[in-house]
Write a protein that binds this DNA or RNA. Structure first.
Length: 968
RNA sequence: GCCCGGAUGGCGGAAUAGGUAGACGCGCUGGACUUAAAAUCCAGUUUCCAGUAACGGAAGUACGGGUUCGAUUCCCGUUCCGGGUACCA
């Protein structure tokens, strides 16, 4: 048996496929364990080395749980709807379903080569009609439900209609977009369209106006990703915020439960904090300010009602519905200009802005507690969707309000005296009220209560809980997504497509461009015209398919239901969910929402989908660039040339054929990305250096890879190369480099394939795990992979002699050998549990080093080690397991048990510290008491030497830890 | 801007109920084996000072403070890097 990693990989991957080694049945007699990876979007660049980091980690857990006797569900699938495939289709004319199928196939092959133990029979694809039928069904159910705040759950819309018909809105406690009131008679008297519009205010999937990035020149809505500095990334056209009628999901109805649910799940504190902040619960008060000369009051939400006597202006969002009415003729131009400015600003820009901007409407409102006249401004720092889109500004107690007041010359009234709280900032809710009438002398918390009570008493406000989270816009004017299963009748009333008619499949189309903001589906008139009426042409966002996919894996072929309740009762929830930190908020939050909704429908047994969550860190790669400079020759000619990144402006240069001159770096100079694949990395005086060699540049001419075509066009931009010579005399150029995200557009995607082929899959797997803690971001580098390869070789040599024959002995192992084995079993078992895979690899290395040193080839030691390494190196483990006579697959063999008897230590090495500094170590019996240890230590000559001439003030002894003499 | 995370030798990292900082691996240096190279094996490798030598001395976990007999670990502040910021997935 040879250590031929390619042959071993191939043999066992074939075996697993043929024997369906990883098939999972819904066998309810075994305890279940569900390990899930976030499924990938199958992009054209293929799998990169960052993907497997999580996949390998979860695979190790899945395999070890399988060996521990669990029925393990470990599936994989594809999040196949999305923007890039559609953009690619627009660019190339290749239908998204075609490119998606190609990419999906490639991803699956790549994953199979990583030896991941997925049950591919359960694979799902969100763009498959058999899958998205159920996405449509679920979202349809969301449409058919409303939220009862009393019972705290979703209820069928029919029950709401019944209530409205009998009682109107009297006694109704429903989650709603705006406060609505009507009597039973009034409701019954409405037309079908009026009733439908009335109900939209309550439906959990509803239509309303929201803002989108509108690009007039492209005639389409753009993703935030496609907008840079208020302009489209493609074509550099202006982008404005435009209101559009869109479908949304009422996630706000579930805000409280999404917050509470965090208590019962095992996510990191940081992640929980991010979710909490996203939900953003705050307690405060609503307050109504009458507007001078208007009937309607201005409603604000404030967390600091106590500061109401310090209100010297009001700010409403530029999109606030009252802006037009409040703008006086004198201020009309100023407001118009400001609105134009705001319209060009993205939300991130608006919130990130440190500069204060705003405009006065010309109107005033009246402080309900002291009757003061307060000017009303609009400003971009107030967001339309947060609270009521209006704030009462207290410049003395809020940083942003203060800057605004200073800029616009508005009065500042101090209302809080913080002199009793040294070091307290404006953010701290502490102090004594001043200049505040009946609140004077109160502490802030009491004043908040008193002010709220006063507002309530006057009928001008009430205590209120507010959430930062906004309803989730769920419409896209795009082709490549699930069509909304909605048909509008002749009265424009939306109706859900009946379950029997699902899925609503995408029509065959060739042109996917959106025109004048309408979905491309609008042009598929054969498809969108039905006897019942016209179809909704908006599609759903990519999150629609991904927020419930973990349920489909449980029962992937069920044609009656998205998942059988009995099957869901068995699998319950995901025990371990592994995926990128970039999904930590939105994806997790949205699937938690859908899960809770399905729980309300009685379709799933649990309140939370993911019991434990692990975010793997991103793997970065160098983004390398070559410098294009200008050679200004003595005759005044300019020649574009490629120069090393280390060559400075003004350096004298000479190029054969062009002549002498010097380097100029001006606006026609710049840098161009170089495909990382053809770059050589080296280090000079321990400083990493990236170079492109002349050979690589010459070879690019025949290179057929995609990035080669790109690079050929780039290289034409320079007429010559200013090569440098390395110590071997090879010609190269120095490149500049920074570490960044692996992405096709940086040409720095590193594929796992080449590495697996060269070193074998097991080496690649162990190397990725050995890089460091799985949850930390790290740069990719292959330096060090040789060390892992050498380890595997050494591990193999414990079993196999130089003659390539199995060489194990049945002789009973020594105590020392058994200690090595059981130390390893203990460490690896514990560390898998802690998801600390890098330290598992180190432990294997330590054990292999020890056993090599001991020249141990005892089967009683080596056989359990094969079962222990199986989750990490599944191919080599199978090979050795079979050679040792194991039956079946090692991946179904039992996990080794720790026998503590081998781990007992007789003595402990104590560090002896003096004033906290360790000076020497001494061995004492492991069972010695603190007093005995101190006596033994004091008797030691080395200790006495240290203590000579010094007074011992205190001795601290922690048995089996350390000893510290405090001297002085 | 706001929210979250991170920072330890030349490099990836190890060690937290606070108790020997640098396990393991890479790289580098020297040696063995070899005609030679590769592979393999052995030794050394935080920095500075001192030294023929030794269980020699000092400093050291991004930076500045604090708590403690003792801090990489806990607390306060700062800097830099990464992720998210609601239509990339």
């Amino acid at each position: 048996m040879k250590f031929d990693v390619q042959a071993i990989d191939e043999r066992w991957q074939r075996y697993w496929k043929e024997h369906k080694t990883y098939r999972t049945t819904n066998d309810t007699t075994k305890p279940k364990y569900y390990v899930l990876d976030m499924f990938p979007y199958p992009s054209g660049a293929g799998l990169h080395v960052g993907h497997p980091l999580g996949y390998i980690g979860s695979d190790i857990v899945a395999r070890s749980k399988r060996q521990q006797g669990f029925n393990v569900l470990h599936p994989m699938g594809f999040d196949a709807f999305g923007l890039p495939a559609e953009q690619y289709a627009i660019d190339t004319g290749v239908h998204p379903s075609v490119s998606t199928a190609i990419n999906t196939k490639r991803y699956q092959e790549q994953m199979e080569r990583l030896g991941l133990s997925y049950d591919w029979d359960r694979a799902v694809n969100t763009s498959d009609p058999n899958y998205y039928k159920w996405t449509q069904w679920i979202i349809g159910q969301v449409f058919e439900h409303w939220y009862d705040k009393h019972l705290d759950r979703a209820r069928p819309i029919g029950e709401l209609i019944a209530h409205l018909e009998q009682h109107g809105t009297e006694g109704l406690h429903a989650a709603e977009s705006v406060a609505q009131h009507c009597t039973a008679a009034a409701f019954r008297g409405m037309s079908a369209k009026e009733q439908s519009d009335f109900l939209m205010n309550y439906r959990l999937a509803f239509r309303s106006v929201s803002y989108v990035n509108w690009c007039e020149a492209l005639g389409t809505v753009l993703a935030n990703d496609e907008v840079k500095d208020g302009r489209s990334e493609r074509g550099n056209h202006p982008v404005v915020q435009k209101p559009m009628l869109q479908w949304s999901l009422r996630i706000t109805a579930y805000a409280e439960r999404l917050l509470q649910g965090l208590e019962e799940v095992d996510y990191s504190d940081g992640l929980k904090a991010q979710q909490r902040n996203w939900i953003g619960r705050s307690t405060g008060a609503q307050a109504f300010f009458d507007i001078q000369g208007h009937d309607q009051p201005l409603e604000v939400f404030t967390t600091r009602p106590d500061t109401i006597f310090g209100v010297t202006f009001m700010v409403i969002a530029p999109e606030h519905e009252l802006v037009e009415q409040l703008t006086t003729p004198e201020q009309a131009q100023e407001i118009k200009d400001y609105l134009a400015y705001v319209g060009s600003r993205s939300e991130v820009d608006r919130q990130a802005e440190t500069k204060v901007t705003g405009a006065f409407t010309g109107s005033y409102c009246i402080n309900p507690l002291n009757g003061a006249l307060v000017p009303i401004y609009i400003a971009e720092y107030v967001l339309k969707d947060y609270g009521t889109g209006a704030i009462m500004a207290v410049p003395s107690d809020d940083e942003r309000d203060k800057r605004f007041a200073e800029k616009f010359g508005i009065e500042i009234i101090d209302v809080i005296d913080k002199s009793n709280y040294p070091g307290a900032t404006l953010k701290d809710k502490v102090g004594i009220l001043i200049n505040s009438d009946f609140l004077n002398g109160m502490e802030v918390p009491d004043a908040i209560e008193a002010a709220t009570a006063k507002l309530r008493e006057l009928g001008r406000g009430e205590e209120q809980v507010n959430f930062r989270i906004r309803d989730l816009v769920f419409s896209r004017q795009r082709y490549w997504g699930e069509p909304w299963p909605i048909i509008y009748d002749a009265n424009d009333v939306p109706h859900l497509v009946p379950e029997a008619d699902l899925p609503v499949e995408l029509p065959a189309m060739e042109d996917f461009r959106a025109v004048s903001g309408e979905s491309p589906l609008k042009r598929a008139t054969d498809w969108n015209t039905t006897p019942q009426g016209r179809r909704e042409t908006d599609t759903m966002p990519a999150t629609a398919g991904s927020n419930w996919y973990y349920l489909r894996y449980m029962d992937p072929h069920n044609s009656e239901e998205f998942v059988d309740r009995k099957v869901a009762d068995y699998w319950q929830d995901v025990d371990l969910y592994v995926g990128g930190a970039e999904h930590a908020v939105s994806h997790i939050l949205y699937s938690r929402l859908i899960h809770k909704f399905l729980f309300d429908l009685g379709k799933v047994p649990t309140q939370e989908p993911y019991r434990k969550l692990l975010n793997q860190g991103m793997i970065g790669a160098p983004i390398t660039s070559i410098q294009l400079g200008v050679l200004l020759t003595e005759d005044g000619q300019r020649h574009p040339v490629w120069v090393g990144a280390n060559v400075a402006e003004g350096t004298p240069l000479e190029v054969e054929g062009l002549g002498k001159g010097h380097l100029v770096l001006d606006e026609s100079a710049g840098t161009r990305k170089v495909p990382l694949r053809i770059v050589e990395e080296s280090s000079v005086n321990n400083i990493p250096s990236f170079r492109i060699y002349k050979e690589a540049v010459e070879q690019i001419a025949q290179d057929e890879a995609q990035d080669a075509a790109y690079f050929r066009t780039v290289l034409q931009q320079g007429s010559s190369f200013i090569w440098e010579k390395d110590k071997e005399g090879r010609l190269y150029l120095e490149l500049s480099a920074q570490v960044g995200k692996m992405s096709k557009r940086y040409h720095n995607v590193i594929n796992p394939d080449d590495i697996s082929v060269r070193y074998g899959t097991d080496c690649f797997r162990m190397y990725e795990m050995f890089l460091g803690p799985i949850d930390q971001a790290k740069p990719w580098s292959v330096s060090g992979i040789d060390g892992v390869y050498r380890f595997l070789r050494r591990f193999w040599n414990l079993y196999v002699g130089n003659d390539d024959r199995l060489n194990v002995s049945s002789v009973a192992p020594s105590k020392e050998e058994m200690k090595v084995l059981h130390t390893l079993i203990k460490k690896v078992t514990e560390d898998i549990d802690k998801l600390s895979f890098n330290t598992c690899i180190s432990a294997f290395m330590v054990a292999a080093n020890e056993l090599s040193r001991l020249k141990c080839n005892k089967e009683a030691v080596l056989e359990p080690m094969v079962r222990l390494i199986a989750p990490f190196a599944p191919h080599i483990a199978e090979e050795l397991f079979a050679a040792l006579g194991g039956q079946g697959s090692v991946h179904h063999a039992a996990w080794p048990e720790v026998e503590e008897q081998w781990l007992v230590e007789d003595s402990f090495t104590y560090p002896i510290a003096f004033n906290g500094k360790t000076k020497l170590t001494l061995d004492f019996p492991a069972d010695a008491t603190a007093e005995e240890v101190e006596t033994l230590a004091r008797a030691n000559s080395g200790v006495q030497q240290q203590l000579e001439g010094k007074a011992v003030r205190k001795v601290i002894v922690v048995p089996k830890r350390m000893i510290n003499f405090v001297v002085g």
